[in-house]
Amino acid sequence: MKAFFEGIEDLFVNYLFSPYDFFRFMENWWTSNVVNWLFFIIGMVAFVYWMLELKKYNDRGEEDKSITSHSYL
């Protein structure tokens, strides 16, 4: 099992997080956190889009909201 967890460590440290090593040595806080801000903005846009889609389906009344819609209820 030790080799398995070392393999996971190697995957993340040496491959998946390697682009962040470039940002670690930058002096400016704003420049080093551009990636985080971009992920935040993309996440917020996706969240707003998804909420608008849910509202659209809710306004149309397409969802079956009856109590007997599922057998386990």
Rank of each mutant, 00 (worst) to 15 (best):
N36I: 05
K55T: 11
F4A: 08
L16F: 08
K2M: 13
M44C: 08
R60Q: 11
K65D: 08
W29V: 07
L52M: 12
Y15A: 02
E53R: 15
E6S: 08
V34L: 15
W50V: 05
T68R: 11
S32T: 03
I42E: 02
K2S: 14
L52K: 15
S69H: 11
L54K: 11
V45W: 04
L11H: 01
V45H: 04
A3M: 10
R24P: 00
V13F: 09
T31G: 15
F40A: 12
L52W: 09
W29Q: 06
D10G: 07
F12Y: 13
F22Y: 13
D21K: 12
D10H: 14
S18T: 04
K55F: 13
R24S: 10
L52S: 06
L54P: 00
M1F: 14
R24T: 07
R60F: 06
F5G: 01
M1Y: 12
E63S: 14
N33F: 05
K65E: 09
Y49L: 07
K55V: 12
M44E: 06
Y57N: 15
K2P: 03
Y15S: 03
F12E: 01
F47D: 01
E63V: 15
T68A: 12
E27L: 14
N58W: 08
T68C: 09
G43P: 00
K56V: 01
S32W: 02
F5W: 12
Y20M: 14
N58T: 07
L16S: 06
S18V: 03
N58A: 08
T31Y: 14
T31W: 14
V35H: 13
N28D: 14
D64R: 05
S66P: 00
L16K: 09
A3R: 11
K56D: 05
G61L: 03
D64T: 03
Y72H: 12
F5C: 04
E62R: 09
F25L: 12
Y15T: 04
G43F: 05
G61Y: 01
N33R: 07
S66A: 05
K65Y: 10
F5P: 00
L73W: 10
S18H: 04
V34I: 15
G7K: 05
F23L: 15
L11F: 06
F47I: 04
R60H: 05
E6M: 12
D64C: 03
K56G: 00
A3H: 09
S66V: 02
L38V: 13
Y57P: 00
V35W: 13
F4I: 13
